[in-house]
Simulated assay, not measured.
Amino acid sequence: MKMNPWTLSVLLLLAGPLGADPGWQVEYPDSFCVVEGSTATIPCSFTHPAGQRVERVVWCPNHEICHLTTPNVYNSSNVRADSRFQYLGDLVRNCTLKIIKTVKQDAATYHFRFEANGDKYTKKKGVGVTVTDGEDVKVRSSVTDNVVKEGGQVTLTCTSACSFHRLDVHWYRNGHALSETGPALHLSCLTNNNTGNYTCSLDSSGRKTSAPWSLVVVEDEGRHKCDSDRSVTVSVVSVLLAVILLLLAGLVFAKRSAPGPEHEIVYSEVVR
């Protein structure tokens, strides 16, 4: 069967270089869920035969070949500083893509393409990205009761329809942002200062937050406050160390200033 050169070229592009040589690979999840307004990171890695030098990488939506004229969200030869799509990878192994402040229109099937020494490879199966409205974001707690005694601990988890793999999660207490980030918030050695309404959000602006989860920390008469115990312990240890150091310094100084045998003054009695 005779095949014209154009058809053969297209088939080779779809299959990858060298007839889908196993040395050319791209790995990323089959699907990825993102909450609208949030920032998500799609993990990706690629490999190629030894001796190849990658010259260009591209991410594009809804295209199996992702060639030069295909609309793309990232192109290493034409970087757009204002793009919401940030390439966190390199030209060696990492092809991770970050999507900032996702919108509904970002839902697509994304493909990664890399070019090396004149060869090129695009994984035929892309990663399908879905975008949800995020209205089902909730806070779940490791304890059943909202009232916890001083010195106790609780773990709050932010959940939604999307898996939280590589998603940015922001936490708030009484509407004020906390420094902790991530899907789980660990609160240990609780004091009254931890009392408040906790919310989480996948939107860094804090506009789309979960319903509040109220935490009340009550005094436990039979237990000392963790912070007080720690501060007292640190203070006592510091004082003891200071006293020991002063004693050692005094002994060393006294030993050095005491006259030795060669400096002893001999008094002789004068006989008249």
Rank of each mutant, 00 (worst) to 15 (best):
E264P: 00
A81W: 12
A50I: 00
E150F: 01
L68T: 14
C44M: 12
S142Q: 13
F85N: 09
F114H: 12
G19R: 14
W213G: 06
E262C: 11
P22L: 12
L245T: 15
S141D: 09
L202D: 02
V271T: 12
K101P: 00
A254E: 07
T209F: 03
L185N: 06
K98V: 01
R173P: 06
T102K: 03
V57Y: 06
R272F: 09
E262H: 11
H224A: 14
L240F: 14
T130S: 09
P261M: 00
L91T: 11
A242H: 04
Q105G: 13
D220R: 03
L185A: 10
G134Q: 03
P29I: 01
L18P: 00
Y110K: 10
Q153V: 00
I42Q: 03
S83W: 06
P22K: 13
P71D: 06
V34D: 01
L187K: 07
V270P: 02
P49A: 13
Y121G: 08
G19H: 00
P261G: 05
Y87F: 15
D21R: 09
P5Q: 13
E264S: 14
L91D: 10
D229T: 13
N174I: 11
D82K: 10
R272N: 12
F114S: 07
L68K: 13
A184R: 15
G222V: 04
L14E: 14
S141H: 09
S268N: 11
C158S: 07
V35D: 03
I42P: 03
L156H: 06
K138N: 09
S210V: 02
V139P: 04
T47V: 05
D133V: 03
Q153T: 03
S142A: 06
Y198G: 03
W24L: 07
